[in-house]
């Protein structure tokens, strides 16, 4: 029981990491960036390649992957969203162009890495098994949880207490007013994308480390659960995405523990459905709903 609870928290922390990157862009800019799963997948492959080429330790690997993610995020914004800015159908067109860009990214990954899944070398980060109070935990799970916590708390701090965070919140509230008040909206937009994609790529590399391999469908496989987490937590809410990630992870693990593994997705999505019916804005969503 406790073991399964722990399993759920570990699985959920990856869901949460995927989801906060996505929800950040939506929360600040009202953009649905559907290239996020592809960037996530790219993070996994880049992590594996960098690890294989340089043999740098894990705590340097993830900042490198994050740097790559930040660059990718700026590019996603430049290519898929900026050219559409100011159009009537800006949000919908951006959604479609980001789907297209996601496809391009996956095709590029295939061109570079081929169709077979890639994995970290076994001796890159040898997983050790620990036991605390009857709960078995592997070192990769510990790294995942620690990194997820650091990143989530760091992001929360960044948004609430730094100048960039303040401008992000200003843009989220009212982009025009923020511009009038001297906020460089272009820079804030690029910064938001950079942050979002950095989180996404780190989550991708973490999942690859946990799973033992990465295929081109890595992003697609977490996409649906990730979106469920975002909705469950309340679209645009960072705390919501974090909490919902863990809730969903635990719900899945407990279903396996108490019922049957076949019911796993059913229970997870029934939970989503129930939340939407009882509390349409999600666990942490704001009452004010803005039309996109």
């Amino acid at each position: 029981m406790l073991q399964q609870l722990a399993n759920g928290v570990f699985a959920g922390s990856i869901y949460a990491l995927f989801a906060i990157g996505f929800t950040l862009v939506f929360g600040v800019l009202r953009h649905l960036n559907l290239a996020h799963p592809a960037v996530f997948t790219a993070g996994a492959f880049v992590g594996i390649e960098v690890a294989a080429r340089t043999a740098i330790p894990v705590w340097i690997l993830f900042p490198v992957v994050a740097l790559f993610g930040a660059l990718a995020g700026v590019l996603v914004e430049r290519i898929a969203f900026r050219p559409l800015r100011g159009r009537d159908d800006e949000h919908f067109a951006g959604l479609i162009s980001s789907v297209a860009l996601g496809g391009v990214v996956i095709a590029l990954l295939q061109a570079r890495y081929g169709t077979e899944p890639k994995s970290f070398a076994t001796d890159y980060f040898p997983s050790r098994l620990f036991e605390f109070a009857g709960i078995r935990v592997t070192s990769t799970q510990l790294v995942t949880l620690a990194l997820a916590l650091v990143l989530m708390l760091g992001l929360a701090w960044l948004v609430s207490a730094t100048p960039l965070g303040r401008s992000m919140r200003a843009v989220a509230e009212n982009p025009t007013a923020a511009k009038v008040l001297g906020v460089n909206v272009g820079r804030v937009t690029a910064g938001t994308y950079a942050l979002s994609s950095a989180l996404g790529t780190v989550a991708g590399a973490l999942l690859a480390l946990n799973l033992g391999q990465a295929g081109r469908d890595l992003g697609a496989s977490i996409e649906l659960v990730g979106f469920a987490v975002i909705i469950l937590g309340g679209l645009g809410s960072l705390w919501g995405a974090m909490a919902a990630g863990v809730v969903l992870g635990v719900a899945e693990a407990m279903t396996i523990h108490l019922f049957d593994s076949t019911w796993k997705s059913m229970v997870a999505f029934a939970l989503l459905f129930a939340v939407l019916v009882i509390r349409p804005r999600g666990l942490f969503g704001h009452v004010k709903v803005r039309e996109v």
């Binding site: 399993n7 570990f10 799973l211 899945e252 593994s261």
Partner: peptide, 15 residues
């Protein structure tokens, strides 16, 4: 049970 696209098998393996 699991699905090939699953991203986590820990819970099943614990069982």
């Amino acid at each position: 049970t699991f699905e090939t696209a699953d991203t986590d098998f820990t819970a099943q393996l614990t069982a």
